[in-house]
Amino acid sequence: MKPLLLTAALLCATAATASEQIADKYPGSILYDEPVEVIPGVWSAIGATAPPTYENSGHNNNLSFIVTGDGVVVINGGAAYGLARALHDEIRRITDQPVKLVFNENGQGHAMLGNAYWAEQGVPIVAHEDAAHEIEEYGGTVLEGMKRYNRDKAEGTTVQGPTETFSDEYIVDMGDFHIEARYLGPAHSPGDIVVWLPEQSLVISGDMAFHERMLPIFQHTYTADWLETWETEFEPLGATYVIPGHGHPTNMAQVRRYTHDYLVYLRGKIREHIDAGGDLSDAYYVDQSPYAHLDTYEELATKNAGRVYEQMEWE
Rank of each mutant, 00 (worst) to 15 (best):
G71E: 08
N115H: 14
T95V: 00
A86Q: 00
T95W: 00
E129V: 06
G109W: 10
V99A: 02
V126K: 00
A127I: 01
H110G: 15
E129K: 07
R92N: 12
A119R: 15
Y117C: 11
V72F: 03
G107M: 11
A111Y: 07
D70A: 15
H128Q: 07
E120T: 04
N76H: 12
V73W: 04
I75K: 05
V72Y: 01
P98Y: 00
V99N: 01
H128T: 02
T95L: 04
F103T: 02
E129N: 07
V126G: 01
A131Y: 00
G122K: 11
G107V: 10
A80G: 12
A80K: 12
P98N: 00
D70S: 15
E120Q: 14
E120G: 02
Q121T: 03
E105I: 13
G109E: 06
A84R: 08
H88A: 11
A80H: 14
I75S: 01
G78W: 03
P98T: 04
I125P: 08
R85P: 09
G107C: 12
E90V: 11
V102T: 04
V102H: 08
M112A: 14
N76G: 12
A127E: 01
V99P: 01
Y117D: 08
F103N: 00
P124N: 07
N115W: 06
A80I: 09
A119Q: 15
V72G: 06
G114H: 03
G122D: 01
F103S: 02
D89R: 13
L113S: 10
D96A: 10
G107E: 09
R85N: 11
W118N: 15
A131Q: 02
L101E: 03
A131K: 05
Q108G: 14
I91S: 05
I91E: 05
V123E: 05
L113N: 10
G77R: 13
I125N: 02
N115R: 10
Q97A: 13
N104R: 00
N104M: 14
W118S: 05
V74Y: 03
V102A: 06
